[in-house]
Amino acid sequence: MSKFTEKNILIVGASSGIGQAVARQLAAEGATLFTAGRRKPEGFSSTHLTWDATQPDETALNALPGTLHGLVYAPGTIRLAPFGRLKMEHYEEDLKLNVLGAISILKTAMPALIQAKSASVVLFSTVAAQLGLGLHSSVSVAKSAVEGLVKSLAAEYAPHYIRFNAVAPSLTDTPLAQAAGLVAPNRLEAAGKRHPLGRIGTPDDIAGMVTFLLSDESAWVTGQVLHIDGGMSTLK
């Protein structure tokens, strides 16, 4: 029997990038997938709920099951700009997508997570929340808030046996990073050399850790921010 057989997992933002890689791995392990986002993901079977993280509508999630064993919130932003060029609305937009969207869906899903009596929630931070990286102030603010949320909820919901953890990647080859011009062919070699392991990440690199955190193999892991970053956050 697969380790995710008879487990209901909700993935928000599964249409591309890391969220899609997580969904593919979980589908291969036998999970029953529920997805939420603006676009229905392809390549695996799921019950899809149309939901916009920037304008969260709780009624759109009425089709969620009564029991949820796992939740992954994958939407994110890459907004790199000098502090002087960033406007207040840029910070507000990043907070809305990265933090408030996660809070909204967690509030809706919490009764189903409690019902599981052993659930796991995985949110996403970034290596920039730990390292001082120029041009990253907006995303660093938003993702630092995610880390605080994870630790607070891990403490609050430990009596309900719900585990909360965050994964903090470094640069990963996703459509979001491609759209930001961060993984263009002429920049890949230099980007890889900034990481001790000599390359940038892949969605599957990150998804493997997320799948572990959702599984019973990580049953004693909660309140952690796990840096899956090729050593960038700790090695020189």
Rank of each mutant, 00 (worst) to 15 (best):
224 Q>C: 11
218 S>Y: 04
222 T>L: 04
225 V>C: 10
220 W>N: 05
199 R>I: 09
218 S>M: 01
205 D>Y: 04
207 A>T: 07
199 R>D: 12
196 P>Q: 14
226 L>C: 08
197 L>N: 15
214 L>R: 01
213 L>P: 00
215 S>V: 12
201 G>F: 07
204 D>W: 03
200 I>L: 04
201 G>M: 08
207 A>F: 02
225 V>L: 12
211 T>G: 01
212 F>R: 00
202 T>C: 03
202 T>N: 11
197 L>R: 08
193 K>V: 03
189 E>V: 10
227 H>F: 15
189 E>T: 14
213 L>T: 02
215 S>A: 11
189 E>M: 10
208 G>I: 01
226 L>Q: 07
190 A>I: 05
224 Q>I: 06
222 T>I: 05
209 M>C: 13
200 I>F: 03
216 D>K: 12
221 V>M: 15
225 V>P: 12
193 K>P: 04
197 L>M: 15
188 L>T: 06
228 I>L: 08
229 D>G: 11
187 R>E: 14
212 F>I: 01
191 A>G: 09
214 L>A: 03
189 E>D: 15
209 M>D: 06
201 G>Y: 08
230 G>C: 10
202 T>M: 07
189 E>G: 06
204 D>G: 03
212 F>G: 02
223 G>S: 10
223 G>E: 10
199 R>M: 13
197 L>G: 06
199 R>E: 13
190 A>F: 06
214 L>E: 00
226 L>K: 05
213 L>Y: 02
201 G>C: 08
224 Q>D: 11
223 G>H: 12
188 L>D: 02
210 V>W: 03
215 S>C: 09
215 S>I: 09
210 V>A: 11
223 G>A: 12
217 E>H: 13
199 R>K: 09
211 T>H: 02
229 D>P: 08
210 V>N: 06
201 G>D: 12
214 L>Y: 01
210 V>T: 14
204 D>Y: 05
219 A>P: 02
204 D>Q: 15
204 D>K: 05
217 E>Y: 09
190 A>W: 04
226 L>D: 05
200 I>H: 01
197 L>K: 14
218 S>A: 15
192 G>P: 00
226 L>R: 10
228 I>E: 11
211 T>L: 02
225 V>Y: 06
208 G>A: 15
204 D>F: 03
202 T>E: 13
228 I>D: 11
214 L>G: 00
211 T>P: 00
221 V>P: 04
229 D>S: 11
216 D>A: 14
194 R>K: 15
208 G>C: 06
210 V>H: 03
189 E>W: 07
189 E>F: 09
220 W>V: 09
210 V>K: 02
212 F>L: 04
204 D>A: 14
222 T>Y: 03
189 E>R: 10
196 P>W: 13
219 A>R: 14
223 G>Q: 11
209 M>W: 12
215 S>E: 04
226 L>E: 08
208 G>N: 15
223 G>W: 12
193 K>G: 07
213 L>R: 02
198 G>V: 01
226 L>H: 14
227 H>T: 06
200 I>S: 01
